[in-house]
Computed example of a mutant assay.
Amino acid sequence: MIAIYPGSFDPITFGHLDIIERGVQLFDRVIVAVLRNPNKNPLFSVQQRLEQIRHAVVHLPSVEVDSFDGLTVNYAQMRQAQVLLRGLRAVSDFEVELQMAHTNKTLSTQIETVFLATSNEYSFLSSSVVKEIARFGGSIEHLVPSHVAQELQQCYANKYPVSNQK
């Protein structure tokens, strides 16, 4: 059975990796699919995010990394996937994800949504939180893979150079 794990992954975090690693235990193949969303202004390009994810999942041979635009269910049908894999951190995630799952079901009755609760240690973690910490020079090595932490630190060092002025 093939599962699609869609998202923006800007950047991929250990919370995302938690869902991916647990997903490969449940499904024959997991396709991590980066959505090209015109409504978002990502920090990293789609190509950068694809490379970050590929590097992070190199140890998982049943994971494929791809990108798409348009409706997730259309992409899932094109890839012959039966499942959309989604992670849940909090009740607020559940409300949004449940609404999306119901909407997707109206578009394709053949595709199921499977929710995995994120492990407790990552329940607070989001890409937005990581970027905010990195922007202000905080430690993020415990939140994202080391190669992603380095890219974030470089990115923010160039965008927001530290000033010693008071």
Rank of each mutant, 00 (worst) to 15 (best):
M1W: 02
I2Y: 05
I4A: 06
I4D: 05
Y5G: 01
S8G: 12
T13I: 07
F14A: 04
H16E: 08
H16A: 07
L17H: 11
D18G: 04
D18S: 06
I19S: 00
E21C: 07
G23R: 01
V24T: 14
V24L: 05
V24K: 04
Q25H: 11
L26R: 10
L26T: 05
F27K: 12
D28R: 12
D28Q: 13
V30Q: 08
I31K: 03
I31D: 03
V34M: 11
P38M: 11
P38Y: 13
P38D: 13
N39F: 13
K40T: 06
P42W: 13
L43H: 00
Q47N: 11
Q47C: 02
R49A: 02
L50R: 04
E51R: 13
E51C: 04
R54T: 04
H55N: 11
H55E: 15
V57F: 09
V57W: 08
V58G: 06
V58L: 14
L60D: 07
P61A: 09
P61T: 09
S62D: 14
E64M: 11
V65S: 08
F68H: 01
D69G: 11
L71K: 05
L71H: 08
T72Q: 04
N74T: 12
Y75F: 15
A76Q: 03
A76P: 05
M78G: 06
M78W: 10
R79P: 01
R79G: 04
A81I: 05
A81N: 06
Q82N: 10
V83A: 05
V83P: 02
V83K: 07
V83H: 12
V83I: 14
G87H: 00
L88P: 00
L88K: 00
R89K: 02
V91W: 09
S92P: 07
D93A: 09
F94L: 15
E95K: 14
E95L: 10
E97Y: 02
E97S: 02
A101D: 05
T103D: 09
N104G: 07
T106H: 14
S108E: 03
E112L: 08
V114L: 14
F115S: 06
L116C: 07
A117P: 08
S119L: 09
E121Q: 15
F124W: 15
F124S: 11
S126G: 08
S126R: 06
S126Q: 07
S127P: 07
V129Y: 10
K131Y: 10
E132L: 08
E132S: 13
A134I: 01
F136N: 11
S139P: 02
I140F: 10
I140N: 09
I140R: 07
E141T: 14
E141V: 12
H142D: 14
L143Y: 12
V144W: 01
V144T: 08
P145A: 07
S146G: 03
H147Q: 10
Q150K: 15
E151W: 07
E151F: 02
Q154R: 14
Q154D: 12
C155E: 13
A157V: 02
Y160H: 15
P161G: 02
N164E: 14
Q165N: 13
K166P: 04
K166N: 13
